[in-house]
Design a protein around this nucleic acid. Sequence first.
RNA 1: GGAGGGGUGGCUGAGCGGUUGAAAGCAGCAGACUUGAAAUCUGCCAUGGGGCUUGUCCCCAUCAGGAGUUCGAAUCUCCUCCCCUCCGCCA
Length: 482
Amino acid sequence: MIDLRQLRDNPERFKAGARAKNIPVEIDRVLSLDENRRALLTRMETLRAEQKRLEKESGPQIGKLAGAIKKATGDEAARLQRELDELKSKPAQLKAEISTIEPQIAALEPELSSLLLQIPLPPDADVPVGAGSESNVEIKRWSPAGFDLGKSFEANRGFKPKTHQELVRDLRLADFERGVKLAGTRSYVLTGMGMKLHLALLRYATDFMTDKHGFTPISVPVLVREEAMVGTGFFPAGREQAYHIAETQRRNPDAADDKGVGSHDLYLTGTGEVGLMGLHMNEILDEAQLPLRYVTVSTCFRREAGAAGKDTAGLYRIHQFDKVEQVVICKSDEAESRAWHKRMIGYVEELLQSLEIPYRLLQCCTGDLGPKNADMIDIESWMPGRGELDKDNRPQGAFGETHSASRLYDFQCRRLNMRYRTESAAGGKSETVFCHSLNNTVLASPRFIIPLLENHQQADGTIRIPAALRPYLNGAEVIAAR
RNA sequence: GGAGGGGUGGCUGAGCGGUUGAAAGCAGCAGACUUGAAAUCUGCCAUGGGGCUUGUCCCCAUCAGGAGUUCGAAUCUCCUCCCCUCCGCCA
């Protein structure tokens, strides 16, 4: 969520931001609704102040009169009653007037808050402007010694690479047919060493963040309430990407009526970020607690609506996967946010280098950002079995997105109502301000199994396990056909 | 599944129709005492919003959320959400 006051002060900044992100929003409508609302609010508050003043004034008299009436008789009682009615009538008039304004304000609110939730965070000035992923800018490229990304896999290694689908089939690491039988398209089953490799990667990535970089490991619910989805900024824009558990639609078959028996709906999260960020929703933290550095491993669910026909085969684009995710919640300070962003990307680089996977860093352009990011760096791993086909109808290799590092300033924390109390400077008052937040993938599997298998395949069809991963596979150095 | 109890400031917790935006304690901040610290004492310490005369200013709202009763609601009524305890069932 953006700050309504900032929007009032500088609507152009937000209009330009939405335009650059290619997200249509009615900012002028928001401004006029807001202005309307404030005018009504001022009027109502003035009336209410007057009402309260009268109440205080006449309250005790009303009490006294009411008592006197009980004792009085005949004309005297009637006279007192008139006096009492007179006293009561003035605040009643004000109340009536207030009650005509109240619904007017209430009527404006749903549209205003719904529009406000749709206004994206403007991208930072140093983010390149562009319409979509074709305008993203490569800012760094790395490959292990002995592997030259300028040459083909064959030129580097002396043999034609298999695709991960072929490797997985030959080494019996996954079973797509049965996955689809069980759960439909984009489903899979990892088998044997495929499952072991999956678990080893997740555990290695988790240990890497906790033991080497001091992150706190945390488990999170993957079935969450709508608040958490809206708060983290995935809703309303990404509603169609999330699986929805419609508990309120649940019917009790024995009940005579058809009322729902579930208290509220739930949503399956598409990333551990939702749980990690939602942890401190509606809390006020102490500045001394910050930065919070959390890592979780969670199962992620994505409907992949609108991706029909895209990456349909293999382990690339699937409805369910597991992901180690890092989140940092820090002070409201641009320089600190930027520093953490760099650091969080650095952790992933270190991880990828330890696994000897070639990768590149992509500066996402404004059109590729999504509503909640001020800046986003994607990390793409080299996948020799991906990309355009050569003259022999074999893929030439391509980078594929495996990580995404977002910098959100206070956009998320504002929606989540997540603040901290500043340490008061000498003599100064402390204040409560919204935290900043950042998140980045550490490792998502099985997608990451793709670059791992494809890059470390050997001429004999086996897979060399990089040294860093061997402790997590009982010391195994190779995956071979069973 | 059955039966109860409860949601109050950063935390604990009183209040159960009338200056109660809210006692008290803890935590925090400032000061005094101290060589320093601790202890002790004194004072200050909720959030959101609106206004303009932008001020150690004024006003409004908020005691889970919503609706109602009342001149007046943290306090009474109804609905929703959430938490807890006991019993049963399951692990």
